[in-house]
Computed example of a mutant assay.
Amino acid sequence: MHPRDIDLSERPFVLIWEVTQACELECKHCRADARPDRHPGELTTAEGKELLSEVAEFGDDQLVVLSGGDPLVRDDLVELVRYGVEQGLSMTLTPSGTDALTPEIVDELADAGLRRLALSVDGASAEAHDEFRGEPGSFEGTVSVARHARERGIPLQINTTVCRETLPELPDLADLVEDLGAVLWSVFFLVPIGRGQVLDPIDPERSDRVMEWLLEQSRERSFGVKTTEAPHYRRVATQARQGGEAVAPATADEIGRRTSIRAGNGFAFVSHLGEVYPSGFLPVSAGSVRDRSIVDIYRNSDLFTDLRDVENLNGKCGACEYRGVCGGSRSRAYAYTGDPLESDPLCPYVPSEYDGPTPDQVIDRSMSNPADD
Rank of each mutant, 00 (worst) to 15 (best):
A263F: 07
E254I: 03
T251Q: 12
I261D: 06
V247D: 08
A250F: 06
Y233N: 00
E229L: 08
A230M: 02
E212A: 12
E212W: 04
A248Q: 04
I261T: 09
A263E: 03
D208L: 04
R219S: 09
R209Q: 05
V236L: 02
I255T: 10
Y233R: 01
L215D: 12
R258Y: 15
E245F: 00
R206Y: 01
I202P: 10
D253G: 10
T227I: 03
I202A: 12
L215M: 06
K226V: 14
D208Y: 14
T227K: 00
Q239Y: 08
R209L: 06
D253R: 06
W213R: 09
F223I: 02
Q242I: 05
P204A: 14
Q217K: 05
S222Q: 14
T228E: 13
T238M: 15
E212L: 12
R241T: 00
W213T: 09
R235W: 06
R234L: 13
N265C: 09
G224Q: 09
F267C: 07
S222K: 12
T228F: 07
Y233G: 01
G224S: 14
R241A: 00
A237G: 13
W213M: 13
R221S: 10
Q217G: 02
S222M: 10
E212V: 02
R241G: 08
R258T: 13
F223L: 03
N265G: 01
P249Y: 05
A230C: 06
V210E: 06
T227Y: 01
S218Q: 05
R206H: 02
E212H: 07
V247W: 05
T238S: 14
